[in-house]
């Protein structure tokens, strides 16, 4: 167990706990856009930065990655911290003007759009938090999408922006996307995601279309359970 101070509050947390987690467990809110309890942190969005003090030295660290230590003093809202968060939000407001999520956080934190930043028109709502990519790789185990290019031209999507043959249409990426950038269109027996159409399977019991056939086949291959046995929706099981 490590004893530390977060925003003046004495906190004890198990060794290895990230500051973000320890703070949240103690009712201290730190904003983030790229962290999710089921996925390894990546430290991409930089919204969760905090200022730590060890002895006389202080520095800015990412709270989703930096782990609690004995004697650590954490300030989650120092001026240096807020300066970083304000910039990150101003940058995202300009990159993703259509994103309601970003606007809401900005309003909550009192951050206004920076008039010197021209609004992007081609980035959609994607902030490149890579939650989708990590979910697809680490949770689903499919690796249908990834990041391509470098720097400001970095994008997320299937390889070469072509229809992904690996994608199973599970929609986990759309589910974790914090800004709603990933669109999943559903018609009765069909789902469209990343430009590819997926045939949906109807539940053997209630007849409701509940999962893409590709996903059931993928699960079947992985678990050895036949597709027939998987063809009952969760509500009817």
């Amino acid at each position: 167990m490590a004893k530390c101070i977060i925003d003046g509050k004495k906190i004890t947390a198990p060794d290895g706990t990230p500051i973000l987690q320890a703070a949240r467990d103690n009712g201290i809110d730190i904003p983030t856009l790229c962290s999710h309890e089921s996925i390894e942190p990546s430290g991409a969005c930089r919204l969760c930065v905090v200022e730590i003090k060890k002895g006389k030295r202080s520095k800015i660290v990412t709270s989703c990655l930096y782990q609690v230590e004995d004697g650590l003093e954490v300030d989650t809202k120092s001026e240096r911290v807020m300066n970083v968060r304000r910039l990150v939000l101003a940058l995202l407001l300009a990159r993703n003007p259509a994103s309601e999520v970003i606007r809401e956080i900005a309003v909550k934190m009192g951050v206004n759009p920076q008039p010197r930043f021209k609004l992007d028109e081609d980035k959609g709502k994607c902030i490149l938090c890579r939650l989708c990519v990590r979910t697809c790789a680490d949770i689903v185990g499919v690796n249908a999408i990834g990041l391509s290019h470098r720097g400001p031209s970095k994008t997320v999507g299937p390889p070469f922006d072509e229809d992904s043959s690996a994608c199973i249409g599970c929609g986990a990426c759309a589910y974790v996307c914090p800004t709603g950038h990933i669109l999943m269109e559903e018609k009765v027996d069909e789902r469209k995601i990343w430009g590819r159409r997926f045939k949906m399977k109807a539940c053997d019991t209630c007849g409701r279309y509940f999962a893409p056939l590709d996903q059931l086949e993928f699960i079947s291959k992985k678990t050895g359970v036949s597709v027939a046995d998987l063809s009952i929706c969760t509500s009817c099981r």
Binding site: S42, G43, A44, C45, R46, L47, V84, L87, V88, L91, L92, A94, R95, Q114, R116, F117, I127, L128, R130, L147, H149, R150, G151, P152, S153, K154
Partner: peptide, 15 residues
């Protein structure tokens, strides 16, 4: 040359 992973570098340097 920014790798594009984190927002301050990717977006900030561009601005």
């Amino acid at each position: 040359e920014s790798c594009g992973k984190c927002i301050p570098c990717r977006e900030g340097v561009r601005r």
